[in-house]
């Protein structure tokens, strides 16, 4: 998936799940800024996995701070936490 497609996917999920407006969700948006917490992060991961089969690992979830981080991780341009510790 291209970064544009991933961002569109995240927007669709987050509007549906977290009562956010599409405009509020930008690549630079931070989870705190969007009023999302660890429970929301898990629910986002569950929805992404359901939609495209991408699996997050625990350490990845803990390190994600922005929408850009999520896009990069899914697109493979961000090193996962597992790779970083190898």
């Amino acid at each position: 998936m291209s970064p544009t497609d991933v961002l569109a996917l995240l927007k669709r999920i987050m509007v549906r799940e977290f009562d956010l407006t599409e405009d509020a969700i930008q690549l630079s948006s931070g989870f705190e800024e969007l009023d999302m917490d660890s429970i929301d992060a898990v629910d986002l991961a569950v929805s992404v996995e359901e939609e495209i089969g991408f699996q997050f690992n625990t350490d990845d979830l803990a390190e994600l701070r922005t929408i850009q981080n999520v896009v990069d991780l899914i697109c493979g341009t961000r090193r996962s936490a597992a790779q970083a510790t190898e």
Binding site: I39, D40, V42, D43, V46, E49, E50
Partner: peptide, 12 residues
């Protein structure tokens, strides 16, 4: 039990 899967089970 029916799907033998955790897929789709959210944190809540």
């Amino acid at each position: 039990y029916q799907k033998n899967s955790l897929s789709g089970i959210g944190a809540n």
